[in-house]
């Protein structure tokens, strides 16, 4: 069965680009527009990997990370965060919140697939 990835980003263009890329590589993709939306969808579906933006309205990626890790079925699911700049303190915060790793935005589709393959490939 195809692996399911939850892609969280408030920017529709990035989200769809990610979804398109991932779908092309055979993954199932669930899209969410912000942390709250993502949390809801994470509860409804079984997800193999979460890919989340950090800076989002309503609920940001860091809070989403922390809340996801509190859910019993998301304790070990890989969560990658997309950060716009390779900002160290964002990474530190992400790590503290339970992120698996990080990917710098902008990225090209190849890089995205490469990183995801490393995690759930």
């Amino acid at each position: 069965m195809a692996k399911t990835i939850l892609a969280v980003d408030d920017s529709a263009s990035i989200r769809q680009m990610v979804a398109f890329t991932l779908k092309g590589a055979g993954y199932e993709v669930i899209q969410a527009v912000d942390g709250e939306d993502a949390l809801e969808k994470a509860n409804q579906h079984t997800v193999n990997l979460v890919l989340t933006d950090i800076n989002m309205p309503r609920m940001d990626g860091l809070k989403l990370l922390a809340l996801l890790r509190k859910l019993s079925n998301y304790k070990t699911v890989p969560i990658l965060m997309l950060t716009t700049e390779s900002s160290d303190d964002i990474k530190a915060k992400g790590r503290a919140a339970g992120a698996t790793g990080w990917l710098v935005k902008p990225f090209d589709p190849k890089r995205l697939l490469e990183v995801i393959a490393k995690v759930i490939g």
Binding site: R69, K75, T76, V77, P78, I79, L80, S86, K91, G94, R95, G98, A99, T100, G101, W102, L103, V104, F107, R111, V115, K118, V119, I120
Partner: peptide
């Protein structure tokens, strides 16, 4: 441009 946190879940 990317990285993983050692010891983090599923890294």
């Amino acid at each position: 441009g990317y990285g993983f946190f050692p010891g983090a879940p599923a890294a």
